[in-house]
Amino acid sequence: MLLQLQPAKLIKRYKRFLADIEFTNGEQTTIHCANTGAMKGCAEPGDTVWYSTSANAKRKYPFSWEITVSKDEHFICVNTLRANQLVEEALHKDLITELSGFNLLQREVKYGNENSRIDFLARYNDAPDTYIEVKSVTLLESGHGYFPDAVTTRGQKHLRELMDMVAQGHRAVLLFAVLHTGINDIAAADHVDPIYAKLLKEAQQAGVEIIAYKAEFSLKKGELNISLDDKVPFITR
């Protein structure tokens, strides 16, 4: 994925979807933040942020926060919309070996008993359908990555749905897209959402596959290339 970006300094994030930034000339503006999480460690005042510019003249906030460069010089993709885009690109390039070889890939398919939509539904010849749920990981603590970074009842629902798919004879995969260069392994954040952590362990025991792939970042003269092709371990605690 190639993005055209511009740098600025973060002043503060607020109201979940907004952030104030300062340009290099000292002017300030408000940008959109497509991230509903806590963004712990990803939104510290003074951090360098990289933003994209929308061509849609009707948008109230034409700039979108894409990347944070932390004080430790870690690259963090904070736009959670990018996770599914990166996964889709990686799937079509067969970079995620556990999910390669499909005949058909569909996005946002309705399924389950709790009125959900699966991120991707993959079909492989005569094999059972594969339901793929994508989660973006950006929480780094004590050298390890964790999910979630806030209590997520929606994520809990998705785990129940995936377990139901396995019970019905399908294949279910929880795919963590690690969008933080400082994260080299991940685990369930039971200190953040113990219910989610418990459900995740139950899901794994029920046959839901858990895999994680990390993004690589390359930034040159405002052009950012991101690819999801580096597998990292999921640690069961």
Results as ranks from 00 to 15, higher is better:
199 L>P: 03
161 E>M: 12
159 L>Y: 03
189 A>K: 02
144 H>N: 14
201 K>M: 04
142 S>Q: 14
153 T>S: 11
174 L>A: 07
148 P>A: 01
168 Q>C: 05
171 R>H: 14
220 K>D: 13
145 G>S: 10
143 G>C: 08
208 V>E: 05
141 E>I: 07
185 D>M: 01
158 H>D: 15
206 A>I: 03
145 G>C: 10
166 V>M: 12
209 E>G: 09
190 D>Y: 07
171 R>E: 12
177 A>R: 11
138 T>S: 09
202 E>V: 01
185 D>L: 00
144 H>Q: 14
199 L>E: 09
167 A>N: 11
159 L>T: 02
159 L>P: 04
205 Q>D: 06
199 L>A: 01
201 K>T: 13
179 L>P: 09
189 A>G: 08
157 K>F: 07
141 E>R: 15
143 G>H: 06
200 L>A: 14
173 V>D: 04
184 N>R: 13
139 L>C: 03
195 I>F: 06
137 V>A: 02
203 A>C: 06
146 Y>P: 02
138 T>V: 15
202 E>L: 14
163 M>L: 05
173 V>E: 06
149 D>C: 05
197 A>Y: 08
143 G>M: 09
173 V>R: 10
213 Y>Q: 08
157 K>I: 15
150 A>R: 02
193 D>K: 00
204 Q>Y: 08
201 K>Q: 08
198 K>C: 01
145 G>Q: 09
199 L>H: 05
202 E>A: 13
170 H>W: 01
149 D>I: 07
193 D>H: 02
165 M>T: 12
176 F>Y: 08
178 V>N: 15
143 G>I: 06
157 K>V: 15
161 E>C: 12
205 Q>V: 14
163 M>H: 02
144 H>T: 11
181 T>L: 07
165 M>G: 00
174 L>P: 05
144 H>A: 13
164 D>H: 11
204 Q>K: 15
160 R>Y: 13
142 S>P: 00
196 Y>A: 00
140 L>T: 09
199 L>C: 01
157 K>G: 11
143 G>A: 07
173 V>M: 10
208 V>T: 06
152 T>W: 00
162 L>F: 08
196 Y>P: 00
204 Q>A: 11
204 Q>R: 15
157 K>M: 13
153 T>P: 04
220 K>Y: 09
162 L>T: 03
141 E>G: 00
188 A>S: 11
158 H>M: 14
196 Y>F: 15
137 V>K: 02
191 H>V: 01
219 L>V: 10
151 V>R: 11
168 Q>F: 06
218 S>H: 12
146 Y>N: 04
139 L>P: 01
152 T>Y: 01
198 K>V: 02
159 L>F: 07
202 E>Y: 12
215 A>S: 15
